[in-house]
C-alpha cells in the first residue's frame, strides 16, 4: 500500500515540477569535417545559435562522418550543422548521410559555407535538409532550425 502511494506521489510530484519544462529547446550539433580549419565562422554561428536559445554541442574540427553521427546519437540532437569552406563538402556530407543510414537514424542535416550554387541541389538530393551558402543571413538558419520538428519524445524511440 505504502509503496503504491509512494510511486503515485512521486509521479504527481514530478509532473508538477516539470510543468514549466523547456521541451522546445532545440539541440544542435555543430561540426567541421575533414581538414577544413577555418573555424571562426562556425564558432560565431555557435554563439548566434546560443543567443537564439538553442543548445549547441560543438564537436571541434577534423571530424569524420562516423564521429559526427556517433556524437549526434549520444547527444540526441534535433539537427546536425556542418560548416564547410574547403570544397570537400561533396565528399564529407554524403558520407555523413550514409553513416546515418547505417546507424539507422535520420537526423536533419544542414550545411553552410562555400557551396557553389550547382552543389546545392546535389546536396539536397543526398538528403540534406537545407543549404546556407556564405553570405546567408544567420537568422535564416535560426528560423529554419526553430521550425524543425522536435525529435525528443518516447514515441520516436
Amino acid at each position: 500500500m505504502y509503496g503504491v502511494m509512494f510511486l503515485a506521489l512521486l509521479s504527481s510530484l514530478k509532473a508538477i515540477a516539470y510543468k514549466e519544462a523547456q521541451m522546445d529547446t532545440k539541440k544542435v550539433l555543430m561540426t567541421k569535417m575533414g581538414l577544413d580549419g577555418h573555424d571562426f565562422g562556425v564558432k560565431i554561428l555557435c554563439q548566434m545559435y546560443r543567443n537564439a536559445g538553442f543548445e549547441v554541442v560543438y564537436t571541434g574540427q577534423r571530424q569524420t562522418a562516423e564521429m559526427v553521427v556517433a556524437a549526434a546519437i549520444e547527444e540526441d540532437v534535433d539537427v546536425i550543422g556542418i560548416s564547410t569552406l574547403s570544397g570537400a563538402h561533396m565528399h564529407s556530407v554524403p558520407l555523413t548521410m550514409e553513416e546515418q543510414k547505417k546507424q539507422n537514424i535520420d537526423i536533419p542535416v544542414i550545411v553552410g559555407g562555400t557551396i557553389p550554387p550547382a552543389d546545392v541541389e546535389k546536396l539536397k538530393k543526398v538528403g540534406v535538409a537545407e543549404v546556407f551558402p556564405t553570405g546567408t543571413d544567420a537568422n535564416m538558419s535560426i528560423e529554419f532550425i526553430k521550425k524543425l520538428p522536435n525529435r525528443k519524445s518516447l514515441k520516436r524511440g
Binding site: G34, L35, D36, G37, S86, G87, A88, M90, H91, S92
Partner: peptide, 18 residues
C-alpha cells in the same frame, strides 16, 4: 591543397576528398 598544408600526401587516408 589542405593535405599538403597539413603534411599529408595525397595517398593518406586523411586526404580523401580534399
Amino acid at each position: 591543397d589542405l593535405p599538403t598544408q597539413i603534411g599529408y600526401d595525397a595517398d593518406h587516408s586523411m586526404s580523401v576528398g580534399e
